[in-house]
Design a protein around this nucleic acid. Structure first.
Lengths: 250, 250
DNA sequence: CAGTGGTCTAGACCACTGC
DNA sequence: CAGTGGTCTAGACCACTGA
């Protein structure tokens, strides 16, 4: 006996949620709430075993899920630790513009050009999974490196997220870093879409290039571990100085 | 007893290869060899258990690895099946150019412009993890849709791979599809690098656009499940008709 | 040395598929 | 109904970490 019974975690009537999924989501909550802050050591598998009243294999299955999502990493002989966003597996070699530049010994900077409330366009609404016409905050930014303008971007996000981003010094950090490090979001994936356009008058003036210069146009939509899209950005890069790199996995 | 002994799969002295990894790689071999062709049903977990002389949990761990690599998929109540490359999880929404176009009701076509042997450039050598100056086969291709030229590409690969690609009708299929479907490679990831360039004379003439037209330049390096790079391609797309989409995951 | 995660076993009940 | 994968248990030995 002991295995025909089933009341250890299952409070009472919850339908068919596997035990490991329950353990997983309780741990995930603790992590996302910062009750288990980045870098913190999780209880050992043996402790979790008794805490949740499940077997070790079940604990390990839950931990494996969290590991796959990049929320924790496991070190043999030491324990499991909440991932610091900065040492999470990279979302492709270039997630953040600033990070990319800094590793090359450059000094990136940014300038917020404008912030205003707009109605969601069809594209933005689709990307953010909201109704077209919903209220969004639009932020226009110019990114420079060593004093030379490099990229021009238009970001759309729900007002609370956008305002949180602005609070966190959007001029000195890239969006992805702020979302992860400062706002505590856990990014699972980023949808990208790449094209090429001529700079045109506006972008040409801002980026100090001829209007005919080709620019890389990249649309970014980062999604968190729950599959929720967070922001929608159109970035235009001077392609003479910049290539976007990423790794597409199965 | 029965667990203190350790001679079931371990032939004799192999150092510390976990059992599940041995099961995994033997199954992977069978799949990659086409001894277990796409769509084939794997032996049931119970059968594998006795075949390899290991416990079910070990079998499942091996299968989980293969599943994660996209080599098999498991259907409850039916069994585990070798993935048909076409129903493997997509490598991003747009892996293949042709596939992309066909789903839009267009009829893509291609024309091989030239094939020759060249010495590996620094970039190609790095991407393909070989020595610079090694012999590579270079293939230039023009891709059209509905009779309109859309993309121009230069592919580099080791001669055996390149010649296999040519044999398989490079004009009517994209590289990724041929690698997976016809040549049986299992792709795990694709490195991409996106930029923008002016078409220039040569590409402008081939793509029937003005030399000043911006083109999307995308470098593709597909890698198989063993981490081996297979080809290195520079593709130039007419950006008025095309955007490259992908999902970057952790 | 103790603590931790990594691997493994033997055996069990369940839900789903298809006859 | 039998066959299959999904989940779970209790208990075990190992390799690695760090005191």
């Amino acid at each position: 006996m002991a295995k025909t019974k089933r009341p250890p975690v299952q409070t009472s009537s919850e339908p068919v949620v596997p035990l490991f999924a329950q353990v997983e989501s309780r741990l995930r909550e603790d992590i996302l709430n910062n009750r288990l802050p980045p870098g913190a050591k999780l209880p050992s598998e043996a402790e979790l075993e008794v805490a949740f009243g499940v077997s070790r294999i079940t604990v390990r299955q839950a931990l494996a899920q969290l590991h796959k999502q990049g929320l924790i990493n496991k070190i043999n002989g030491k324990g499991s630790f909440v991932t610091r966003p900065s040492d999470a597996p990279r979302l492709g070699p270039l997630t953040g513009f600033y990070e990319h530049m800094r590793t090359r010994g450059n000094s990136p900077s940014g300038r917020t050009l404008s912030v205003r409330e707009v109605r969601a366009s069809k594209e933005a609404a689709e990307a953010l999974q909201i109704e077209p016409g919903s209220l969004l905050t639009q932020i226009k930014i110019l990114r420079s490196v060593n004093g030379q303008p490099m990229a021009y971007g238009v970001l759309h996000a729900l007002p609370p997220i956008a305002h949180a981003l602005i609070q966190e010094n959007l001029d000195d950090h890239d969006v992805v870093s702020i979302l992860e490090v400062s706002l505590g979001y856990r990014l699972a994936s980023i949808q990208i879409e790449a094209g090429a356009v001529a700079a045109g008058k506006l972008r040409g003036r801002l980026l100090e290039v001829d209007p005919a210069t080709p620019l890389v146009h990249i649309r970014f939509t980062p999604h968190d571990v729950m599959g929720q899209p967070l922001t929608y950005s159109d970035m235009y890069f001077r392609s003479d100085r910049f290539t976007y790199k990423a790794v597409v996995k199965r």
